[in-house]
Amino acid sequence: MSTIIEQNQSNIITDNGLFPSNEVMLDLKNLKKVYPTPKGDYVVLEDLNLQIRKEEFVTIIGHSGCGKTTMLSMIAGLNPISGGRISVLGKQIKGPGPDRGVIFQAPSLMPWMTALQNVLLGVNQVFPHATKAQRNDIAKYYLQKVGLEDAFNKRASDLSQGMQQRVGIARAFAIKPKVLLLDEPFGMLDSLTRGELQDILIEIWNKEKITAVMITHDVDEAIFLADRVVMMTSGPKAKIGDILDIEFERPRTRKSVLEHDDYYKYRKHLIDFLEH
């Protein structure tokens, strides 16, 4: 594998030494988050270290309230950090920006805009120098990719929850972010729709290979989508508990994953951790 060769060739190793620095897309170092409360500080996260490589899909799993969402919103820049640092391609982040696209748990579309206008809102912002036709083409391309070619001009408020989240996916990919952050994007959907959207997400991701960090509660979803599953310990003072490498080949199909011998081994590993 090329990664092994590169690791051998290069001596540029970061201080906590997991991966060579030129491979790292997202680097969380000694990350800390404290919420002040009347009864003293509440430490949500402490000493959290995590490196995510380029073109890697990482899922994060952990109990409710362990600080997964806090961590993700800190990476997005929507929540200030109390200590440590977050860098993208070696550069420390300053606030939110379109280099880190977010797919929220609620679709968060502007309900008064059409599907196309919602995607264009981001595209116009990121490609200000493109012509109007080019920007339209980009937005339409991604809406087609998520299967909404018939709904360009439908108002977001007229779309079903699942379709709204498809627009959310299109909007996030269309701005071509360096990192894609997904905060339980399918948590509010029924299992059938969820499966559909996982397929759409992984299909479009296979093509774009955007480094992705996704929070989920669903063990099967975590295995199906990820290169690595990061398990977080329960809060307060949550940190990384364990990391599981998922070595299924890509592109994957749901069937091949389910039928693979290692699938239940992975699943057991994750469930053992969560039930511990």
């Binding site: 939110p96 920006g97 379109p98 968060s108 912002q125």
Partner: peptide, 13 residues
């Protein structure tokens, strides 16, 4: 809605 504001922030409107 806070979600809309977050979208605006992420897109740096």
């Amino acid at each position: 809605d806070k979600d809309y504001i977050n979208v605006a922030k992420v897109l740096k409107l």
